[in-house]
């Protein structure tokens, strides 16, 4: 038996909205300690990794480990039934054929229940090694989204360069070439800070369209954390306060 209740159901709505354009069918791993999922996009260029801790739920019970195969596209449709201030409860029996989703609004006395049919997916699971990232950039999530959108109109590819003084996003295309350079900014307004932790410079190229899809998650956190290592995929991380973390992994482009 699995049951989890989230008072702020809006968070779950946002999480589903943040991953639905990247992954289609996912296996949701339920354990007594929390909920996690890992899935790649169809081209295996990007990977979504979500980890939610049981502590972040108003009520959480999972007697055993379970795997719930879910079509994210269908889950997104069901989530549309939820109002932004609904409480959301997820329920599934052992060997369940469906996931029961309940939206409750205690104020308006409105309750919505939906049994989402589960699917069987033989998705491959990747072992993601613990990596010591030599560059970690913490940037305002809205600002990073804006930079990616604006640069995307100038080029499909962005080159990210880090060093101890700045992080630089540069593009080159038939329009011309240029870069956005952000230095360390510890402004008193915390959410405007840009924090650079660089032990080794990194220079890699990435497809901006994936970054734009990842940035859908900027509604979940006021900060985006970029973790870079010269030989490793980029990690774009959004911390979900009191609940967990949503991470996106993106393979670099290799200039031939």
């Amino acid at each position: 038996m699995f049951e989890a209740k989230l008072t702020e159901g809006l968070i779950l709505k946002k999480i589903v909205e943040s991953i639905k354009d990247i992954v289609t069918d996912v296996n949701i791993d339920i354990s007594p300690s929390g909920i996690s999922l890992q899935a790649m996009d169809s081209s295996h260029v990007a990977l979504v990794s979500l980890n939610l801790s049981m502590d972040g739920f108003e009520h959480y019970r999972a007697d055993t480990n379970m795997v719930l195969g879910v079509s994210i596209a269908n889950l997104a449709k069901v989530m549309k039934l939820a109002d932004n201030n609904d409480q959301i409860t997820l329920q599934a029996d052992q060997e369940a054929t469906h996931l029961k989703i309940i939206f409750e609004n205690p104020k308006t006395e409105r309750t919505t229940e939906f049994n989402l049919n589960l699917i069987t997916i033989d998705s491959e699971h990747l072992a993601i090694p613990e990596t010591e990232y030599s560059s970690v950039v913490t940037i305002n999530s809205g600002e990073f989204s804006k930079i990616c959108k604006e640069l995307f109109s100038l080029s499909e590819t962005v080159q990210i360069t880090t060093n101890t003084d700045y992080v630089q996003f540069s593009v080159e295309g038939e329009v011309g070439s240029g870069q956005v350079r952000l230095g360390h900014n510890d402004s008193e307004k915390k959410e405007d800070q840009t924090i650079l932790e660089v032990s080794e410079s990194v220079q890699q190229q990435f497809a901006i369209r994936y970054l734009n899809m990842f940035n859908k998650a900027s509604t979940l956190s006021s900060f985006t954390r970029l973790c870079l290592h010269q030989e490793q995929p980029l990690v774009v991380e959004f911390k979900i306060d009191n609940l967990g973390v949503l991470k996106y992994f993106l393979a670099p482009k290799i200039s031939d």
Binding site: H44, L126, A127, T157, P233, A251
Partner: peptide
């Protein structure tokens, strides 16, 4: 030109 890598060249399948 830049070639897009995939994650499978970085992470082992379990």
């Amino acid at each position: 030109i830049e070639l897009q890598g995939t994650l499978k060249s970085f992470f082992e399948e379990m």
